[in-house]
């Protein structure tokens, strides 16, 4: 038992303390968090835009608004649907490799390539989250706003969106958790994020257990933290529904 323990201790020194190898983990974690955060922001922006285009297109179909605006909206809606189909129908890793080796091959910042890829990828999922959040708002809310004389955009911003965002906050936190874990594939383009940090240590020390376990623990703690935050948000929202 004590033999096993001292062996573990030696491995720990070798894996993390010697030559300051723990820095691989810390630097990797920074990159992982940075890529997750920036991708999330980009994804939210893309997602919101697409959700608004698609719901506006669906809702204005009935109204006799001007011809050219409606045609443009139709085209925009078509493009959005194509984007959603492609992004959700292909593996994220393939998208990342295509970006790195083909579409963004001239870009020399791997972080930028990762953020763009994951932002575009996440945007597709966020769009559908937003869209179902908007559609979950009772149709009577839009009618009440419009019957008071408020315009479509005004009603959307003042009345529908606040309720829609509330509806989809939990799902958005979920999306962030997925995104956090998915950035681990960035090792494929040589970006030294958390997973690759652990893997580099494994490569030099030939010890797989400790570095990869530590990496796993860090993801787990982060996910548990986000889940805890989500639980808090959900409880708050439930309370405010009754208030």
């Amino acid at each position: 038992m004590s033999e096993w323990f001292s062996e573990l201790h030696a491995k720990f020194i070798l894996d993390f303390v010697e030559k300051q190898r723990w820095m691989y983990i810390v630097d990797g974690l920074k990159i992982t968090l940075l890529v997750t955060l920036l991708s999330l922001i980009l994804g939210l922006a893309i997602g919101a835009l697409i959700a608004v285009i698609r719901t506006t297109h669906d809702q204005l179909r009935e109204e006799n608004v001007g011809g050219i605006g409606k045609k443009l909206l139709g085209v925009a809606d078509g493009i959005c649907r194509l984007y959603l189909t492609i992004i959700r129908g292909t593996p994220t890793l393939v998208q990342l490799l295509l970006m790195f080796f083909v579409f963004l091959s001239t870009c020399n910042s791997k972080v930028t390539v990762a953020v763009i890829t994951f932002g575009i990828n996440s945007g597709a999922y966020v769009a559908e989250i937003f869209r179902s959040g908007i559609m979950a708002v009772d149709a009577g809310q839009m009618e009440a706003g419009r019957s008071l004389g408020l315009g479509y955009v005004d009603t959307m911003i003042q009345i529908i969106m606040p309720q829609a965002i509330k509806n989809c906050l939990p799902a958005l936190v979920n999306e962030m958790i997925t995104l956090l874990k998915e950035t681990s594939i960035c090792g494929y383009i040589g970006l030294n994020e958390l997973t690759r940090g652990g893997d580099i240590i494994r490569g030099v020390t030939f010890d797989a257990l400790l570095p990869l376990m530590v990496v796993a623990m860090i993801y787990l703690v982060l996910v548990m933290f986000f889940t805890w935050v989500m639980g808090k948000i959900e409880r708050r929202l439930r309370e405010s529904d009754i208030r």
Binding site: D138, G140, A144, G145
Partner: peptide, 10 residues
């Protein structure tokens, strides 16, 4: 306009 289900903004 007044609706059956009130449609107040919650």
């Amino acid at each position: 306009m007044v609706f059956q289900h009130f449609n107040l903004f919650p």
